[in-house]
Each structure stands twice: as structure tokens, then as C-alpha cells.
Design a binder for these strands. Sequence first.
DNA 1: ATCAATTGCGTTATGCTATAACGTGTGCGA
DNA 2: TCGCACACGTTATAGCATAACGCAATTGAT
Lengths: 131, 131
Amino acid sequence: MGMPQLTRNQSLVLGALSHSEGPMSAYTILDKLRDQGVRAPLQVYRALDKLLEYGLVHRLESINAFVACTCPHEHEHDHGVTAFTICEGCGQVTEFHDEAIEQRLAVLVRGQSFKTEKTTIEIRGHCKSCG
Amino acid sequence: MGMPQLTRNQSLVLGALSHSEGPMSAYTILDKLRDQGVRAPLQVYRALDKLLEYGLVHRLESINAFVACTCPHEHEHDHGVTAFTICEGCGQVTEFHDEAIEQRLAVLVRGQSFKTEKTTIEIRGHCKSCG
DNA sequence: ATCAATTGCGTTATGCTATAACGTGTGCGA
DNA sequence: TCGCACACGTTATAGCATAACGCAATTGAT
Ligand SMILES: [Zn+2]
Ligand SMILES: [Zn+2]
Ligand SMILES: [Zn+2]
Ligand SMILES: [Zn+2]
């Protein structure tokens, strides 16, 4: 449940995401890594699964894509509710966290006696540059 | 931009979703409607596009599925930010709206000079019954 | 040291989700 | 009557994700 050394494939995938300007689909990652010996979708998906588990990567549900986590902290703890703005113009993704929203959602789901496992908040629109 | 009479395919798709216990994928809808003459995915997707536009149906991004809107109102206006709890056990989906969250998100994106077009909030977990 | 369990790897095949591209028909206003 | 918008139907294709198999390396008791 901790975060062991990354394997080769995991490092390659995380590297690709970290150096990318924006989010990438699993297949786009695959294409970027073919030269480095990654050949099949499963190699990417398996690496992504682990990176997601370790909190080093986030999945953007609304666009079937992945981004490296941009949190400042050392990923040694869970990072609660994560929210994203996603620009439809340039693809820029901004990760943010807000205690107030987290609290309010907690109250609302408790009202339903619902037990939260994962929360997705994604805001599509246009960034400052893309007006 | 208003909401005209639904076409045959749109009515069939909305009917299928309305009578369903939980969310359905486009292909599941297709299967339910084969007897009524729906044969191809595009017929379903085109109907869904319109129903989404009219606000009669919501798309659940995190599970690639669709639900009929359960808002009490008459769908004559936009319904702002919509949030969902989605039970992993029984599939039950509950739609809810919260002004506080909407406001808070508005503040946060304004801070980024981001212009929101669509907001997705989906909470996966387990409902009261499924513990 | 040995065995069993776990984990990652690589490959092939398959399944699920969504859209492209084309042509048809119908209604409606200019 | 013409032109346009829109819904429809079909075939084909693109894009996203997992099943199932076997092998290799690691770990951690016994
Ligand atoms: Zn993060
Ligand atoms: Zn932008
Ligand atoms: Zn609704
Ligand atoms: Zn349930």
C-alpha cells in the first residue's frame, strides 16, 4: 500500500506524462514509448493502474486521458478530493483542491447515507489564454 | 434551442432510460430497443445527443453510461451544476444539486480566469443498502 | 536451499465505446 | 420549385480497455 520503486514501464509512463504539456490517452502514451520498447496497450494500462494507485497520476474521466499529479507534496498521503479544470482550446489541465467543497460534499453524501470511495470533479471550459 | 417534440428514436431511448432501474450504456440501450426497430449504435447516440442537449438525460462520465434526468422541474431551464452519487454495488444513481458547491466552484475557476462550460461531479461509492 | 506466493512482463486476441462518411427522405420557407 | 435543415438508416472505422495465457524475477517463509 506504500510506494515502492517504480518499475521500468511505470517510470517510462510517468516520464511521458510528466514531460507532456497536457493530458494523454493511454494509446498516445503508447505511441510515445514505442521507441523505448513498449509495444502493447496492456503495458501502458498496467503501469497507469499502479501510478494511479500511488497517486502519481490522475485519470480525467470526461476525456479518457491521464495527467501526472502536480501536487507539491511528496505523495506520501492520500490527497483527498481532487478537482480539475480542462481547457477545450489548448488542453491545459489545472489540478486543485478545496477543503470547503470537500466538506460540503461530505455533508451531502452523509445525508444519503452514502459511503464515498472516489470523487470526480472536472470542469470543462476555456482557460484564460483561450478566452 | 428550445425543446421540440421528440422524434421516434428519441422517445424510445428516453423511454428505455426512464424505465430502467439504473444507468445504461448506449449499447445496452441499443439491445433493449432492437425489437422496436433500432439497429445501429448511431441511432442511439444521435438520440442521446439531443436528449442531453434538451437536459432530459445526463451522461455519467466515470462509467460511460446515461441516466434519465430525475429533476422535479419541467426542464424549461438549464439546471446548473448537477452532481451524482453512483453505487458500485447496485448501480443506483442519485442526482443532486447544491448551490453552495456551485458558488464555491465559480469562485475557484474565476480565480484562474477560467470560463466554465460544463461541470462534472460524480461520487462513486456504496449506497445505504449496499453498505 | 527450497518451495510457494506474489508481482511484473510480454503477447495475442477480444470486447466495449464512439464517430466518420455516405446517401435517403421529409418538411418548410423563400 | 428550389434550397435548406434535419432526422434517419447503413456500413465501416476509430478509439478505449480488458481477458487470458505463459514466462521470469522477487520475496519470504519453512
Ligand atoms: Zn494530484
Ligand atoms: Zn486554453
Ligand atoms: Zn437533471
Ligand atoms: Zn447500492
